[in-house]
Computed example of a mutant assay.
Amino acid sequence: MEEPVVIGHDKFKIGEDETAKRELRVVKVHDDVIQIQEEVHGIIALVGASSSVNIKKDELKQLIKIAKEKFGWSDLCE
């Protein structure tokens, strides 16, 4: 499997003195499948947590279509 590409990285405040860190990465699993990984570290996850989703090429096209039509993300390409 290839190295993930980081597409998002941010910190957010969850309490007066507590900050959580979040990172979103994409990795190619197969020619027509990508995996999106989100890792959150901080008090919410205690030691950390991660989840992932496999997306086929045609599913991504549908996701883009839904994001454009339902969420108004008109700057996405097909």
Rank of each mutant, 00 (worst) to 15 (best):
V53W: 11
K68H: 09
D75E: 15
E59I: 03
E3F: 08
D10N: 05
E78I: 01
E78G: 05
A45E: 14
V26A: 00
K28P: 00
D75H: 13
R25F: 04
Q37S: 12
K13P: 00
A49G: 13
A45N: 12
E59Y: 11
W73T: 03
E2F: 11
E69G: 11
I34S: 07
K68I: 08
H30L: 00
C77D: 11
F71N: 12
K57P: 03
L46P: 04
I36L: 14
E18K: 10
N54A: 07
V27N: 09
I34Y: 11
L24T: 14
E3I: 08
S50P: 05
S50V: 10
N54S: 10
S51H: 11
L63W: 13
V53E: 05
K11V: 14
Q37E: 12
V29N: 03
N54P: 06
H9A: 11
L24V: 15
R25G: 00
I43W: 03
E2W: 08
V33C: 00
V26I: 15
G8N: 10
D31F: 01
E38A: 06
E69N: 14
I44Q: 01
K21W: 03
I14E: 09
D32E: 14
D58A: 13
K61C: 02
K70M: 06
M1T: 04
G42W: 02
E69A: 09
V47M: 07
H9F: 07
N54M: 05
F71D: 14
H9D: 13
H41W: 07
S74K: 13
